[in-house]
Every structure is written in C-alpha cells, then in structure tokens.
Design a protein around this nucleic acid. Structure first.
Lengths: 401, 401
DNA sequence: TGAATTAATCCGCATTGGGGAAAAATTGGT
DNA sequence: ACCAATTTTTCCCCAATGCGGATTAATTCA
C-alpha cells in the first residue's frame, strides 16, 4: 500500500508539470498553472527544480500571444531533448528495427535489419539484438554509456513487470527472462514489452490518438495484439500481462470454435494461397503482405476471399472489444493492412454488423499503416515513460546531466 | 488533472486507515501502522480524527496477543456500525430486492417484492422502487432521514458517473436519468449502478473474492453482465460505462454472427422449450430457472440441450474475457446457475477447450448461487464506497464475518 | 520618462507526516 | 505494596509542501 507523504505529493505534481511541458510544447509557467490547476507559486518552484536537474530548458522567443501583448513577456519552457537518450526496438519474425530517441521521443537514428530471427535459439536472437542496439547507438554518434534505458518490443504475451516473455512466436522457449538477459549483456537497464503496447504509446504520443486519454489499439501482424489506454495509461491485465488477441475464440455450436489467429493471422491469410516461387520468396522475406496486395489488385480470388474472411473475423473481434472497453477510438495498425481495401472494408462491414446499436456511435475506427520505425519509436516511448514515472516508484530526480 | 495538495494527502491516508479498520475487524493502532506503513504518530492522529467524527469506535477487550502480554494493552478500533446507513436495491424484471445496511455493510433489514416491473413506464417503476425503499427502511426501524445514500442496481448498460441508464431490459426508454429521478423522489442522494457491478463488490467485500484485488465476475441472469475488479477498484469502461456481455458476438463465417444474449440469456434457454401451463406460469413469476432444473432432472431433452448450448457459448465468452483480463479468478453468478450441473459442466468444458494453453492455469472458475439479498447488499456496498470517498481507493475485502 | 500591465518570485502561513521523547497502562518479580 | 520492565499511545518539534498576498521584474504604451 502506497503511503502518501509530502515526497509523493511532490512527485505527483512534478510529474504532472513535466508531462504538461512535454505535451504542450514550449509553454509558459502561467499556462502550466492553468492546465495543471497548480498555483503559479508551485509551478515556479517545480520548474525551478526541473531546470536545475536539466530536464527542461527555457526559451525566450516564441510567445504566441498577441504580438502586441503588454506586460512582462512569458518565458517558454520545453523539454530538454538531451536530458536522456533511450533505445527502442521492435523485433518481428523477419526483421528487427531499432531507434535511438532523445528525451522528447524524437528519433535520432534508426536501423532496420531484415533478418529472420524466427525460432532461433535465445542466445542467437539476443546476440542479434545486442548488435543492432550497438550499431544504432553508434549511428546516432553516441556511446552505450549515453543511453539511459532500452525497451524491446516483442510480439506475444509479455509480463511487463518482470520482463518475462511468457510466450512469443519468435521464441522457441516459453517463460524467458529476456529483460535480465539483455540487461546483463548491454549493461543498460532494459525492459521488455509487448510490441502492441509499444505502438499504442507511439500513437498516444505522436500518432492517431494524441488527443485521447482512452483508446484501444489493435495490431494485425503475424501476431494479433491489443493495447488498451485507460486514463492516459496502458491498461495491463491483472498480472501485468499483455493481451493476445489471436487467442480469442470465435465460434458457435459444437466444436466449431476457431481461434482468431487461425482465421486472421498473417500466415492464415497467405497460407490459403497456392504460392508460386516469387510469392513464396516474398513471404519468406517478410514482404508477403505487400506482394499479396499486388495479387489482389490482379483479382486473385483465393486471396481476396481469404482477406475478406479474415477481415470479417477481425471486425467481430473489434466489436467485442468495443463492447467491453467502450473506447472513443480504435486504432488499427499492422502489416496486414497492406492487403488493401478489400481487407479494410471487410473489417468495417463486419464491425458495423456486429456492434450493438446502442453503442454504435461510441467508437470510431481508424486505420493506420504505421511504418516500422514508429513501432521502434513506440518502444522507446515505453522506456521514456519509465524514466518519467520513476519518481513514483523510486525516489530521486531523473538522471541529470 | 488532480492536483496533489496536503488535503489530498490526508484524504488518501485517512481512507487507507479507515479501509484497514474495515477490512481487519477490531484492530489496534500499531497493527494499522504496520499494515499501512504509516508511522504510529500519523495513525494516532488520523484515528483521533475518525473517532471524533464518530466513524470508528474503541473497544478495550479483545486483544488477541498472548494473554500473558506485558505492557500497555492495545486499544482495538473498529468501524462504528451506526456511522451511516444506506439502502441497496436490485431491480430485476420480475422482482425487486431491497436491503438496508449499516456502515459495515451488514444487512439490517431486507425485503423482496416479487413484482414484474418489466417494461412498465418509468414513473411506475420509480413508484414501486420508492415504495420498496421506504418499506425496507421502516422495517429496519429507521426513517428516510437516517439514510445517507442509496444505490439502485439495474441490469443493462449504466453510466455510473452521471447515473444515466443507457439501456436496460426493464426500461422501455433509453438514456434515462434515473439517478436524478430517484434522488428527487426520495430526497436522499441516490446513485445508479449496473447490477453486475454491485454483485462484484459484494463478492469482493464478503463473498468469493475477499482475498483478491483482481478478479472478474460474470452474471448470468436475464441480462448477461460483467464486473471487472482491477487493483481493488471496479474497472469501468472509458465513458464510465458498464459492460454488457450479452452484446458480445460469437460466430464465424458469413452472417453466422450471433449475439451471446440470444444464445445464453434466460429467455433464450427457456424459450426453446414448449411450455405447458405450469412451466409458463413459473417463468412468468421468475421461477423459471428453478422449475427448469426440475425438468432437467426429469430428463427433459429439449431443456438439457438448450442448457448445454448456452453453457458452451458462455464458456467461450469467459475464455475470451480471461484472455483479455487475465484475472486469477472468475466468479460466475446468476439465476441461470439454477439450471444445475448440466449447465455448469458445459461452461467448464467449453472454457477448458477454448482457453489458450499458455494461460490455462491463470484463472480458476468459481460458481456461486448468490441469493438475491446479496445483490442488494452489493448495491449498498456501492453506496458505502462512495461514502468512504475513496480518493484513489482500494476498497478491499473484509475477512471476518 | 513614467504609468500600466503582466509574469515570475519572495515571504509567511497552515497543513501534513515523521522521529524521538514522554506519558500511560499494564505485567512480573521481590 | 512497590518498583522495574515492557508495550502502546501521545506530545513536541522539525522538514517539506502548496498556497495566498506582497513584491520585484520586464515589457508596452502614452
């Protein structure tokens, strides 16, 4: 049970101020005071402390009020981009993507390695990731010592608190303590998170959900993932587990139960198609979805049917999720969107048919073909969130400079 | 955004102390200090204030330590049962149940009115409820002026924050501001809540989830409801909405989508059976489920098949919910459980078949045929929780009783 | 140059929780 | 009966926080 002492009080207000500065760009103290409902005195004290710790910077230009404003001009405050650096990584079956970002989450360098890590031994995967992180850091003209935290986004069921990978399509083993593994290799605090959670935060910070504190994201890749943002925070299941949408079952009647993954996973869609050499090659290299779109454009009926069927199943699942969480927006991302309008429209239609009339107007569906770099950036944001919220858990100011 | 001032700090600690006293029966200041990790000084100050406000009582007997304990004996503190009184109500299609409880949530009087309110005009339903509340209060030798708060539990989709009933099977209208209606009638602060949420809190305080701060409850009545307890608090959807399990869709393939309610709602199960006069009468009076069990015992194959089919659908839905929320326990309640073992075993089997192997061991299923009074008590607990004015509150279990 | 205006800071106050000393209330032994 | 030992509870004082009002700072306008 958390005990509420002055220290916690300060930590809360400090975080709120810092978060307000992050969200609302260069911002003056008065405006922070209005937004956070703290007195100007308190804001002044806290920003002084933040300036002292080097987390924010002053900027004397950029007062946006009427140019003809009377009185003492406002001093704008903004996040010090160099207050920290983090690395985010997205690991998929056929590629790894890395991004180094500054304290604001802006990408300093990124790196894509089109390597199939699928089912390699843990040590091999860890080796490859370690290498990628190091190279990406060097690309940003930095050294590993400059990195404050690392977050690795993986598909599958991840236990965020412990950094344990319960199960992932790219690991042969289950229950892997991957956070410890990478931390000891890189000598930098490394956390492990579901890739769906990473892209969820990316959309909250920079993407299609900037304006919302509640939303749901569905990621359609090899694995079907889910991210739920609730009151501005990632909602993690009871054990801190991430969700795995692919494990949802559809079906009715005797033994007609089907897992969503077997209907709508990447391999399920492509698997139904008799592949010629070029298509098979494309799939093996992870460009299967883009190639499939070309086939669909050429009116390949097998693929069109598979896409429609998959979209239908996903539409149903999304409707159920909206029924449960009631979010104002559902962001749908992932490589499967490359299948194009047949797929997307199929999702929309099934969703409209399945959503109960009483909440039909609650949620809007938004599709976004996020590029890989965004996923890695999202992982970096997860790492940044930990840094921001460190005052909640552990005492003491964030890593100064 | 909540601003953290000393007042909030005090409110948090005060609530924690009060909650600790409620949970752990008569308890000494030292033990509160240990459990809450507050200093004895602070605990003393807060308990003094609580005593001053009449919320708790001292008791000089009952020190459970070794009878041969040296030193000053502990003074035990406990909730003052008379610090407040609330009324809880459960409104179902064919009956209304009321309970007056004290500050501890102990039932002082209860009243069941086997009246069918189904689809009556709002004013009629409100009249009946008003009457029931008044009678139940009188039964407890109290007057309405002694009542501090009232909570009415209804099936359907309820917006807790505003007290608006978005849709309910017992209302003809939608979007009814029922909280205002009842508050103005009774002149006592009245809140409206989903009946599933009410029974969820009842099980958290007194029932099958006393030991847990995370769990999921599924209620199988005329309406299929869901309650999610997360970190000791009811998890409400983004808009403060309650969930409606019956709106979930099962199904795969073209236009085979079926809503859970049409498969597993009470009327769906009973509706398939060709009713003779006595059965129809029983159903009309709300004893349909009990009667159905008798028919099942007599090997009525139509009903057995319907029960099995319904159980199957529910088992699937429960598996999906566990996949999403990962709770350590699922409590299943509701009148449909009267159908007996055919139904229950069917749920269990379908659940086992549908739950992904990786999380098969996460959750246990618990069935509980909660009596109606418990539902009303749960509504009272909802009202008590508001009184406790939990600022961030984990309103947890009371092991005693 | 001075008045008006707005932003940021300084000073003092009330409140909080915590630590250590003191008081209170008991048991055990002589 | 009395005193030492022990344990709980309270009392006193301190540091830290946020806030309100007064003060200072930095600008525009007349």
């Amino acid at each position: 049970m958390k005990t509420a002492d002055p220290e916690l009080m300060r930590a809360i207000n400090r975080f709120n101020v810092l978060d307000t500065i992050r969200r609302h760009g260069p911002i003056s103290r008065v405006e922070i005071s209005e937004r956070s409902e703290l007195s100007t005195t308190t804001v002044s004290a806290i920003t002084a402390s933040l300036l002292d710790d080097g987390l924010i910077l002053t900027r004397h230009e950029g007062d946006i009020r009427n140019a003809a404003a009377r009185g003492r001009p406002r001093v704008m405050l903004e996040l010090n981009p160099d207050a920290a650096r983090v690395v985010g990584a997205k690991i998929a079956a056929n590629r790894m993507v890395f991004a180094v970002t500054n304290f604001r989450g802006e990408v300093l360098s990124d790196l894509t390695l089109p390597i199939r890590v699928d089912r390699q031994p843990i040590a091999v995967i860890a080796d490859l990731i370690e290498d990628g992180v190091r190279r990406c850091v060097v690309d940003a003209d930095l050294s590993l010592e400059d990195i404050d935290s690392i977050c690795i986004g993986l598909p599958g069921v991840i236990e965020h608190r412990t950094g344990c990978v319960r199960s992932s399509p790219i690991f042969r083993e289950t229950d892997v303590d991957f956070a410890s593994e990478m931390t000891s290799r890189l000598k930098v605090a490394t956390i492990v998170e579901s890739d769906a959670h990473a892209i969820t935060l990316a959309h909250h910070w920079f993407g299609r959900a900037r304006d919302l504190d509640d939303m749901v994201l569905v990621s359609l890749e090899q694995t079907l993932g889910l991210g739920v943002l609730h009151a501005g925070q990632l909602f993690r299941g009871a054990g801190g587990l991430s969700h795995n949408l692919g494990d949802l079952v559809l079906g009715v009647g005797h033994s007609q139960t089907v897992r969503l993954a077997t209907l709508a996973g990447e391999s399920a869609i492509l698997g139904e198609h008799p592949m010629d050499g070029r298509f098979a090659e494309a799939v093996r290299l992870g460009r299967g979805m883009a190639h499939a779109q070309a086939l669909i454009a050429a009116e390949d009926n097998t693929l069109i049917a598979a896409s429609a069927r998959a979209g239908e199943a996903i539409g149903l699942a999304v409707a159920n999720i909206v029924t449960l969480f009631g979010p104002p927006r559902v962001v749908i991302v992932g490589s499967s969107l490359s299948l194009g309008s047949v797929f997307v429209e199929s999702i929309r239609e099934a969703y409209q048919a399945a959503i109960p009339p009483s909440i039909r107007s609650v949620a809007e569906l938004v599709f976004d073909e996020s590029v890989d770099e965004t996923w890695a950036q999202g992982a970096a944001v997860v790492a940044l969130c930990e840094l921001y919220e460190s005052p909640w858990g552990t005492t003491g100011p964030a890593p100064g400079l």
